[in-house]
Design a protein around this nucleic acid. Structure first.
Lengths: 251, 251
DNA sequence: AGCGCTCATTGACCCAGGTCAAGGTCCGCA
DNA sequence: TGCGGACCTTGACCTGGGTCAATGAGCGCT
């Protein structure tokens, strides 16, 4: 509900070295990994790296969709607004996320950095060129889009039919599962530490609730010893499986 | 909320003539239209036509995703269930709809025919073959998936943040806009006749409401002279623009 | 170390929409 | 042409989560 985004000098556009993609830490997590190492220079040539400061909106819903982005660092929230300011966060884009699938001629959502974010930016025309040169990339994008669609439908079920308690449980489980193979999982009651780069308000806007309900519901889960809340941006999942049962409506 | 789907002999699998695709009325509306007329025989060879009776579930959430479908007649509802029977309809698939995008190894949703439905069925492997032979088809699927994603995000906004009144208005406008170029639109107050092949219950499950709320809200809109309800499967939009304003939260 | 800001928590109250219940309408079928 | 069943409407009441308001906790800045 922050009324205005302050106009700090937020986007720093850095020009490109010979072959940034080769050393990119996000490559393994992103669509780029389908491109052969020998061809990475072409990928580097087609894009520029952009840094985005926390709080800055780098994609504006309704603007002409001139660019596509690949996230190489940090997390952003993706959202849509109603004229009176009601907000729906449609997702959180972390490292490896390809931004620009849900696009026709203009962006269908806005994107705002929650942390210092780095993205690889492609112009629409250059991306089209890459897709023609690398059919594997197109295949990969279709695969990614299909997965997004599955996630979107899961979210519709959540927003349309789940209780506040089930929504929070689902959110925590989804966040926990996105931790890249924390070893101590699989056994029933292993604690997991979940990072939350977003505020309670963002979580509320993602789950179709209010800040107060998010806060109350988390407090209740804590009182029931399902979770711990060491600080505002971390939650420890004490009973993964029990919370998963709540999430799926089985408890 | 129909507890069980009766096991009538519902799926009639008809073997394929030489070149069904050539005379297919749905071609202009579906992904197939990117395939050259000269190559349509290959498309025909890769698929079979299946008839589905109303009420029959021809895709079951969780089943291994062995087939993809292209709808050539009738409308189906796509939905997900929670263990206790709560249902979220994620969409309605009409003529031209490609079914199977939101798929990993198993189906993420169920599909049930609302009317007599005909689909073109492809096996996963045969579709893969087609995608390799016709890169344009892959491009088209990516485009379709992107549009689906836009629609899905719009639906998240609806489910997460709109009132019952706004949800119904949005639903009616979306249905009205899908009518293939009814000439008398564009002017402000032209009546539009909307076909509703689904029940109030299906609409409720689509909009995250109950049957009663859907019924009450439609009655209210009728009392306010925004719509007419000649019968259960038709609604006449008397004031398109006013309803559109309600839908977008501007009224 | 204390000010001021943003974010989170908690409580008291309220209301949009859910639940429960009683008809009403439509239609296919004998 | 009247019966049975599916679907829809309407009313009375209830409740999960929203609203409003006060307080607390963390933290950067001076």
């Amino acid at each position: 509900m922050t009324a205005m985004t302050r106009a700090r000098p937020l986007v720093i556009d850095s020009h490109r070295d010979a072959n940034v993609c080769l050393t990119c830490g996000a490559r393994a997590l992103s669509v780029c990994h389908v491109i052969d190492e020998a061809d990475l220079d072409k990928l580097s040539a087609a894009s520029v790296t952009v840094s985005v400061q926390p709080g800055h909106t780098f994609i504006q819903e309704g603007d002409p969709a001139e660019h596509f982005f690949n996230v190489t660092a940090g997390t952003s929230k993706l959202y849509k607004l109603l004229p009176d300011g009601r907000r729906q966060v449609t997702g959180f884009a972390g490292v490896g996320y390809f931004l620009g699938l849900a696009v026709s001629s203009s962006y269908a959502f806005s994107a705002e950095a929650l942390e210092p974010v780095k993205v690889c930016r492609f112009s629409r025309t250059k991306l089209r060129g890459l897709l023609d040169d690398f059919p594997a990339l197109e295949k990969k994008l279709l695969e990614v889009a299909s997965n997004e669609l599955v996630v979107a439908q899961e979210q519709m079920l959540l927003l349309g039919r789940k209780t506040a308690r089930e929504r929070l449980a689902s959110f925590l489980i989804a966040r926990a599962n996105m931790i890249p193979h924390c070893p101590g999982r699989g056994a029933a009651n292993v604690a997991e530490r979940i990072q939350l780069p977003m505020t309670r308000g963002d979580i509320a806007d993602y789950l179709g609730l209010t800040i107060e309900t998010v806060s109350r519901t988390l407090s209740k889960l804590r009182a029931e010893k399902f979770i711990e809340i060491p600080n505002n941006s971390e939650i420890v999942l004490l009973k993964h499986d029990a919370v998963e049962d709540i999430a799926t409506g089985m408890a």
